[in-house]
Design a protein around this nucleic acid. Structure first.
Lengths: 182, 182
DNA sequence: TAGGCCATGTAACCGGTTACATGATTAG
DNA sequence: CTAATCATGTAACCGGTTACATGGCCTA
């Protein structure tokens, strides 16, 4: 999924500034799709306006920076809905942690411990975030997605906690050799 | 995770040609990390050889293309192990399907049905693949990762099947309007 | 008064993909 | 006979990131 589709998806729900769009991509429920940064948001917004898929108005506030608020146009809505209709590309999952786990015997018990504990903490934090969204959720599709995320992450967490010791044992087997070699 | 680390990880286990590396990235257990294509594998391999992190030898076979087989060097092993030690970047998950689900009410019951059924089929296929790897797995770290994948995907599948109807209902609510409007 | 938040935008760069070029062998 | 598999590699392109420029307000 590219920046264009994601921005259209956001603007289809609510008007927003580039700054707000970026926030939603990193914090809100949209963060479960992609992260995009200013460097791609602003140019994409400009392109979309050129194509007349979005329009904008500027609000002036004394003492605050101007806000350039973007809305989706009718053409933009059509474009977005059309793009939803063609079947989605398969999900992608990338994990550096999994590489560390796969090569656990090459690390020390200590380094693997840091990796898995950080991973557990991270999933717990995301779960907390996703649950906070759930309580304030009224839109059915968003609800569905949030429940999906909650389901996956809490199961993820169960595995991570249950199999933590096992992974540390794999890492620990060679610690003796290593110490002897140093 | 970049191509360099992934290739080093593969070569740390076994020597391989560029062609074989690509296969492992798309089919083997390495596919749970990243997909990389020839266009990035061959140039990366050349760069790694320049840096003397890998070396290569060429095998000639009558009637078959030459095989340029790469091995990791000692320097390469050190580099790889060192890269495992620093804590991993957070996992990333991207899903176009989830965007369709989030905007279910904008699609027809039919289009959403195609999306979720395709998604279910895809996860089922991956599960089958991962299970076939599991049976032939002897390396403990790889085993751990495969079990992790199996756990996550089978739970994913449970949710998808249980909540399928619910999602279709969200999509179906407006089908009446749409038909009337056409 | 230092740092964070609001807010917009650009330019250089980079990692990767897509498509192409080449060509023999083998299985259906 | 056709398609797939083996096998290596390049060039153009593209989508996105990082870092920079700018600047006022508010909070600790």
């Amino acid at each position: 999924m590219n920046a264009k589709t994601l921005i259209l998806a956001i603007l289809n729900r609510q008007e927003a500034t580039g700054y707000e769009i970026r926030k939603m991509c990193t914090e809100g429920p949209y963060s479960y799709f992609v992260d995009i940064s200013y460097g791609s948001i602003y140019p994409t917004l400009a392109k979309l306006e050129e194509e007349e898929l979005v329009s904008s108005r500027v609000e002036h506030h004394s003492g605050k920076p101007d806000r350039k608020i973007y809305q989706i146009t009718e053409a933009g809505q059509h474009e977005f809905i059309a793009s939803l209709a063609n079947p989605p590309q398969p999900d992608k999952f990338k994990s550096e942690f999994l590489l560390i786990a796969m090569c656990a015997e090459l690390g020390t018990k200590e380094s693997v411990k840091i990796a898995i504990d950080e991973r557990i903490a991270h999933v717990e934090e995301e779960l907390k975030m996703i649950r906070s969204h759930h309580s304030e959720c009224s839109h059915p599709g968003t609800c569905w997605v949030i429940e999906y995320g909650e389901h996956c992450m809490s199961n993820d967490l169960i595995f991570l906690k249950k199999k933590r010791e096992e992974l540390l044992d794999i890492a620990g087997r060679n610690d003796g050799f290593r110490t002897a070699a140093e």
